[in-house]
Amino acid sequence: MKRVAILVSGGGSNMLALVRSMTGDHPARAVLVASNDPAAAGLAKARDMGVATAAVDHRPFGRDRAAFEAELIKPILAAEPDILCLAGFMRVLTPGFVERFEGRMLNIHPSLLPKYPGLHTHERALKAGESEAGCTVHEVIPELDAGPILGQARVPVERGDTPEALAARVLVQEHRLYPAVLRRFAGGDRSPLYLD
């Protein structure tokens, strides 16, 4: 059984989808939900589901990302995860942190990578006149949003779409895609999964 740690920064809706999926014959179980914000709503939701939690507030560390990560990694290593899932974790991780979990860290991004890495993906897709948007699960490498693609789900852009409306429809697909990719990944299958 693979052990999964999940990093969140906010409400944790993707974390909830992942934890709820890891039951029955699923080859993995959630062992930790950690956050850079002690007030993140996702932490309370994880505790309510019986998952251990940890929080390391990034703010006292200022711009010293390495010092923050040195503290964050302690509860992660203590949980002995086989897989680390970023689920709305809004801190850019240093290459040193990423390399410790190379080949074992996943992220979900709200665009059809390689298009629109980084922030404001829905605004950028609409401004570019895209006919479709979507989400991508990928392996995390030191370069932002550039790791091998493990899965994608597409969402049509509708006439009159706002970034908020598009984001809401993409989020529905994120909640389908991430658990499906994690199940395959935990079972040893790294071939990309494409959902309609």
Rank of each mutant, 00 (worst) to 15 (best):
I73Y: 13
I73P: 09
K74S: 03
K74W: 08
P75I: 10
I76N: 06
I76L: 15
L77V: 13
A78S: 00
A79K: 07
A79R: 01
P81D: 02
P81Q: 12
D82C: 10
D82V: 07
D82Y: 14
I83S: 01
I83W: 09
L84R: 00
L84N: 02
C85V: 11
L86D: 01
L86G: 06
L86Y: 08
A87T: 14
G88C: 13
G88F: 13
F89H: 00
M90V: 12
M90C: 07
M90G: 12
V92A: 06
L93Q: 05
L93C: 02
T94D: 03
T94C: 02
P95L: 10
P95Q: 03
G96A: 14
F97P: 09
F97Y: 10
V98A: 07
E99F: 00
E99C: 11
R100W: 06
F101K: 04
F101M: 13
E102M: 09
E102D: 10
R104S: 04
R104H: 13
L106F: 12
N107M: 10
N107W: 04
I108K: 07
P110M: 05
S111A: 14
S111F: 00
L112C: 07
L113F: 10
P114C: 09
P114A: 11
P114H: 09
K115D: 11
P117K: 10
P117N: 12
P117M: 10
G118V: 05
G118R: 01
L119W: 03
H120G: 05
T121N: 07
T121E: 02
H122Q: 14
H122R: 03
H122T: 01
H122S: 03
E123P: 00
E123Q: 13
E123I: 03
A125K: 05
A125Y: 07
L126T: 07
L126K: 02
K127M: 11
K127Q: 15
A128T: 13
G129K: 01
G129P: 12
E130W: 09
E130F: 12
S131L: 15
S131A: 15
E132G: 04
E132R: 14
A133Y: 06
A133F: 14
G134A: 08
G134V: 12
G134I: 04
G134E: 04
C135N: 04
C135L: 05
